[in-house]
Nucleic acid binder design. Structure first.
Lengths: 119, 119
DNA sequence: AAATGTGTTATACTTTTATAGTACACTACT
DNA sequence: AGTAGTGTACTATAAAAGTATAACACATTT
């Protein structure tokens, strides 16, 4: 689930953290009302400084995805779980793409391009 | 094709530039042996400084995707064009995903997760 | 030889990202 | 009241990313 940040990816740590938390919520591993691990725990899990955690959480709060309660903790505010069918669709596509020796990065690049054009 | 960098995305400019060039090559819009636009032109197109362009091109060169020729230009060295079927697969998936009101960012998050698990 | 177009390098500066450490404030519980 | 667990705020420091500007070096054309 929550893994240490990749410090060599070039992507800012706070963005990676935001994305991992968003992913957990989208996949239903964290649900509305759930309490997030304490900032000191998150700091340990992600392997970054408290300030970096704070920046991620503050941004997530601005996006309305989590909510802070002083002295208590952070809570999931967003209830938008994705349709399980989404995972099915992607699994089938990924199976085919892997057979064609596609790598993840290139796939994402093409996906972004296709996304602009479709519809 | 080549668009100005998004300075508010949080993704470093040199990474965005690398990705756009990789995409052009993967889609077959740039082919083996083709000359890239001059650095001063790229600077104009992407809306960044020459040094940022140089950083992107040097990294692409290290990855074996382009090659520099001093005083002449940069050339595409990589010939790996993707199978057009890849675009077909993704187009169909994107159509369905858009019907379910999925957004691009969430889709990419789930895709990364699915990529790890499949096969 | 000169001019032009190309890549290359250097310097100084600003902003963003991240680390580290410390202290403070609020809540829940006994 | 006290204490443990939580978030919050502040300062200082450093590293990375990007900008602005200028000069330099190589290749091609005239």
């Amino acid at each position: 689930m929550l893994e240490p940040v990749d410090k060599h990816s070039g992507i800012p740590a706070y963005l990676q953290i935001m994305n991992m938390i968003k992913k957990e919520i989208a996949l239903g591993n964290m649900n509305f009302g759930d309490q997030l691990p304490p900032v000191r725990e998150l700091k340990r899990v992600f392997g970054v400084n408290v300030n970096t955690i704070m920046k991620s959480l503050e941004k997530l709060q601005m996006e309305g995805i989590v909510e802070a309660q002083h002295g208590v903790g952070y809570f999931v505010k967003n209830s938008k779980i994705i349709n399980p069918k989404v995972v099915d669709i992607l699994e089938k596509s990924v199976e085919e793409l892997k057979k064609m020796n596609m790598d993840l990065n290139t796939t994402i690049l093409i996906l972004e391009e296709v996304w602009k054009k479709v519809e």
